[in-house]
Design a protein around this nucleic acid. Sequence first.
DNA 1: AGAGCTTTGGGTAACGTTGCCCACTGATGA
DNA 2: TCATCAGTGGGCAACGTTACCCAAAGCTCT
Lengths: 342, 342
Amino acid sequence: MDRADQQRRVTIVDVARHAGVSTTAVSKVLRNAYGASPAMRAKVQRAIEELGYRPYAAARGLRGQTYTIGVMLPDIRNPFFPDILDGLTDTLRDTDYHVLLGPSCDNETDEGKLTDAMVDRGMDGLVLIAPVMSPARLEHLAATVPTVVVGRHTRSAHYDTVTDDDTTGAELVVGHLADLGHRHIAHIEHHETDPARLAEMPNAVRADGYRKAMEARGLAVDIVSTSYTQEGGYLGAQQILARPERPTAIFAGADIVAMGVLTALSEAGLSVPEDISLAGYDNTSFAALGPISLTSVDQAGHHIGTDAARLLLERIADRTRPAAQVKLSPKLVPRRTTAPPR
Amino acid sequence: MDRADQQRRVTIVDVARHAGVSTTAVSKVLRNAYGASPAMRAKVQRAIEELGYRPYAAARGLRGQTYTIGVMLPDIRNPFFPDILDGLTDTLRDTDYHVLLGPSCDNETDEGKLTDAMVDRGMDGLVLIAPVMSPARLEHLAATVPTVVVGRHTRSAHYDTVTDDDTTGAELVVGHLADLGHRHIAHIEHHETDPARLAEMPNAVRADGYRKAMEARGLAVDIVSTSYTQEGGYLGAQQILARPERPTAIFAGADIVAMGVLTALSEAGLSVPEDISLAGYDNTSFAALGPISLTSVDQAGHHIGTDAARLLLERIADRTRPAAQVKLSPKLVPRRTTAPPR
DNA sequence: AGAGCTTTGGGTAACGTTGCCCACTGATGA
DNA sequence: TCATCAGTGGGCAACGTTACCCAAAGCTCT
């Protein structure tokens, strides 16, 4: 073993000694704090570079700040979330903050563990993407650490929200399919029973938007509940196909769901859009794929990410600032998986 | 603002006072250390639960441990990496460790920043998936913190490695296509020029395996260099199609690359496998998708993840244990995108 | 000249946890 | 009877950084 590498970290004390100043002075330079002359700044900067010093975040954490932002998302496999993430990291790139991601957590227990872990690690701020936890827990969490909630239709004095108008998005899809002549349009949703979440979660709002849009047109509502995963789409489509009467179109609540639907349809020997039309949601890069060319709803993930990052930075800077709610508008992107019914 | 929520965290001191014991005693119970009677353990446990105490990781970090494992991966959009991640989190679920992920970093600069950030945050161990940093930096990093390197064909006394046999994997693909009767097989690789990385990175080894397998059969090597992304596949396929003579098969170095190739082929009005055969690598869930049904090479991502986690835990427990190299064997999964040439 | 600033620099007590010590108590063994 | 020892519990000094202080020195303005 190379013992030279195992030596102690360079600390602020080493820098101070090397520069011939106090640790306080070094700390001031690091924080751009008041009370350090340009001459001293230069001296300290030089010492920092010569020694290759980097502040130890754990020690800073003990004093209040870790310069770390935690991000929680429900499913790393859903290709929509990386879009949001890109927006976040692009915005935070020029700041002192670093982004760390939790592993996928799709249930309340995992969410609780992860957010606890993030709080315990002294994170300066959290971005929660479509969290399923109870409103009370969300409230309590946001009171503990600056938080931005993405996707969930709720508001609170403690946290900011960034949402996309899922009701309109669902209406866009139903309108598009109805205009093509479809009368029987099935919807695959992410199952939700908790009354608090029924009104707030994007999947539930999307399903409700579908319901309203169908009823407004006098069409029969046909909802299958599974989950926003590829498997959920597969199973949902199988349920739909097992019935006596087949719908002429399926509205999948997310592109990843549509992926699973495609598998099931293909296995059943049905072709899209000849036998059945299919629309997704999120306009992921997968939807644009040539052989797939999925009709979808664009909700500008990158933009959502930059907004979330901006709001979080503002909230970290001033925790008493009134909570903001940003609401973005979706756009329909028609592609080749939707066509008039035969 | 709800002031009650803003109160100080519950600390070990509060627990000690509440249980009527010393902080040392509480710490002993927390760490399952020697020197605490069952009676005291029970008393302290009760106090911990009553107060809802959770240890503060930043303070622990200052003393040496943060119970955090950092994971770095090149591209969150590549659906292969979540498989590895699942293996990691499944194995670490029952331990005291938490997994935190860095955002995608596909270049040496970002990698350096991220690994620095992870070291600065006192992480107990790192899992680096296909890192591109220099061998010297890798060596130095692994000497600083317990590390497992995934995918990179290298060995060191400081870190363990988990790799898949990419040479064999490439041979499987070329063999499969050649057996079908293909003579002109193009390969899209992730561009690599650094000599150190040419011998070590999975993409480079895969390309080399392709080269050897082609030459062993007396076939002409035809390599296009882009990147292991959807866009890389799209651009690579466009380059291939712009030439006077079209290959009868394309071997994409990763499934995500094959996704982009499909788009380009579709735009060019070519159908798969009638006009051109296509094989990917990684056997991601996307490859199994009905309408895609991509021939691919399975390298058991979940298994890679569990092995990496196991090795890392061992190394954290004993940093002097000799470094291990785990090498897994790939399997060909033929599907509908490969067929004899017309 | 002296009062009252501003600027510059440093001393130091936290922050929450750990692990090395030591002290005390009974029991054990010579 | 006296050392020895295991078992139990606690004191306390770190770990690296920050922010609240205070002190000294050099100004400006009467």
